[in-house]
């Protein structure tokens, strides 16, 4: 063991390394980790405390019954208001606040907005009617001919 001093020092460093890992690990593992599953139990409370941004399907009906009546008889009946207008909880709380108002003129360019669901793609289910944006009356906003809340055209 006379010529093994360096090996002993190395071993000591390894031992110190492993022990400090164990100690540091105790400090680093969050307090509520693993109580319920492989995550921080406190995360649930934390997420719950976040403000709600979506109001839900029924919240808009009271004040916008005209739109919702129109929509409920159309092919867009199954699409929730917030799918197109974005989160609206703040607006439903306080409809007069201009900041919280959902956009009327949706994301530009609007043709692409409708195209997100309607552009031609073989991977879509056929019940979602599809058009080629380059062929289907190009350059004109869809809403010139289709009422968003009742998009069917009378033939």
């Amino acid at each position: 063991m006379k010529n093994a001093r360096h090996v002993l020092r190395l071993a000591a460093i390894l031992v110190v390394g492993v022990t400090s890992f164990i100690v540091v690990r105790r400090l680093l593992v969050p307090a509520t980790f693993g109580e319920i599953g492989h995550y921080r139990a406190a995360a649930i409370e934390q997420i719950k405390s976040k403000p709600v941004r979506h109001a839900g399907a029924d919240a808009c009906v009271d004040c916008h019954s005209d739109v919702s009546d129109l929509k409920s008889t159309s092919k867009h009946a199954g699409i929730h208001c917030e799918s197109c207008h974005g989160p609206g909880a703040a607006h439903a709380e306080d409809p007069d606040s201009a900041d919280a108002r959902p956009t009327r003129h949706l994301a530009q360019p609007r043709r692409l907005f409708c195209g997100a669901c309607h552009s031609e793609s073989i991977s879509r289910p056929p019940f979602m009617r599809q058009v080629h944006l380059e062929i289907h009356y190009p350059k004109q906003p869809c809403t010139d001919c289709h009422q968003s809340h009742h998009p069917e055209v009378e033939k």
């Binding site: 197109c84 207008h85 974005g86 959902p102 956009t103 949706l106 994301a107 530009q108 360019p109 692409l112 907005f113 195209g115 997100a116 552009s119 793609s121 073989i122 991977s123």
Partner: peptide, 22 residues
């Protein structure tokens, strides 16, 4: 309100697929 950038990106992505994909 819906982010127009996201919609653009989604639309571009759609053009890159062919056939039926999830």
């Amino acid at each position: 309100m819906i982010d127009s950038h996201l919609i653009n990106e989604f639309y571009e992505a759609l053009e890159r697929v062919s056939g039926y994909i999830y």
